[in-house]
């Protein structure tokens, strides 16, 4: 297999009893790429991470990480990847600096060997370096976990929902850090439930029920939205949602920020729609055509599944 791929996956399958968690997945991640996985809970994202980091053995198919086979060369892969699982998995009773030296020792590197890589993140943690990891706030835990995952300068970084429970400003900073790591030549596979984060990836894969529905650039995902999208607003938001759903031609209506988004089929007639709502007592309703985003594509695909 070629060395220009950080991750290469072919027909990967993992079953738990009668349940197929990963169902014939094929994709690849280029070197230096920031690749996003988006999909609902239970789509198989975490199982995929565990397969690629050699914590699970597949039932069928194959995969390579940094040119090494995930079954045959598990040890070589472990030395080359950084993994931040979804659940906080550092040692709660060790301090910030103890966690860092522990992970450095595990990987046989000095804490200072790759300090340049983690410095911009670790600097924010330094005032708390003697604090026990279990006593850190959510955002700080996540920064420490990233430092520990980077201490051996991995070539591929696996991040399973790294920003859950993190506020929008800190999430933005976290993704700026990822962009910088990519600049250092580190390839990144990240799962996220936040559609605004998917937009910051080079490519994203939409996954559901153990399969990948599409692998695209964020722009490509948006362009794949077929049909028309409308934005609807009015004062009685909750009642409006139910009323809009009952109208002819409305395929789906869901809250979207300050408005509702409406996907429609050919039976939809904006003039009739407005008139019907007005007859039902909604007099302040505004309806306009809207540009779809990644989240709309996600809503539509999951709706049809």
């Amino acid at each position: 297999m070629t060395a220009d791929r950080a991750i290469r996956v072919e027909g990967l399958v993992k079953r738990y009893g009668t349940m197929t968690a990963v169902d014939g997945v094929t994709f690849d991640v280029r070197r230096g790429e920031l690749f996003g996985l988006i999909g609902p809970d239970g789509a198989g994202k975490t199982t995929l991470f565990r397969l690629l980091t050699t914590l699970l053995v597949p039932d069928a198919g194959r995969a390579e990480v940094d040119g090494f086979d995930i079954v045959r060369d598990a040890r070589a892969i472990r030395a080359r990847v950084g993994y931040m699982p979804g659940r906080f998995s550092l040692y709660q009773d060790l301090s910030v600096e103890e966690n860092l030296s522990f992970f450095a020792a595990l990987f046989g590197v000095g804490e200072r060997d790759n300090y340049d890589l983690i410095a911009p993140i670790y600097r924010q943690l330094e005032p708390f370096r003697t604090r026990r990891a279990g006593k850190l706030s959510g955002g700080m835990k996540q920064k420490l976990a990233l430092c520990c995952a980077l201490i051996h300068r991995p070539s591929v970084l696996f991040l399973d929902e790294p920003t859950t429970g993190v506020d929008p400003v800190s999430r933005g900073e976290f993704w700026e850090m990822l962009a910088r790591l990519r600049g250092e030549g580190i390839s990144i596979l990240a799962a996220t439930p936040y559609m605004d984060e998917a937009r910051r990836c080079d490519r994203v894969a939409l996954c559901d029920s153990g399969r990948l529905l599409a692998v695209e650039t964020p722009e490509g995902v948006v362009a794949s939205f077929d049909g028309e999208l409308y934005a609807l607003s009015g004062r009685e938001r909750y009642a409006l949602l139910a009323a809009a759903r009952a109208e002819a031609g409305v395929v789906a209506c869901y809250p979207f920020g300050a408005e509702h988004h409406l996907t429609v089929d050919e039976r939809f007639d904006p003039a009739h729609f407005r008139q019907h709502l007005a007859e039902a007592g909604f007099h302040d309703v505004e309806l306009r055509r809207a540009e779809p985003g990644i989240e709309d594509v996600f809503m539509k695909r999951m709706h049809h599944e």
Binding site: P40, E161, P193, Y238, Y254, E295, M299
Partner: peptide, 29 residues
């Protein structure tokens, strides 16, 4: 950490409870 579809389903429960007179105090990111 909840996907966009499931999160909206949850908010419909919130709307329904509030419409029934229950007061909702909620934090979110």
């Amino acid at each position: 950490g909840v996907d966009p579809v499931t999160r909206r389903q949850f908010w419909e429960l919130i709307y329904e409870a509030a419409a029934g007179g229950t007061t909702i105090f909620v934090t979110t990111h």
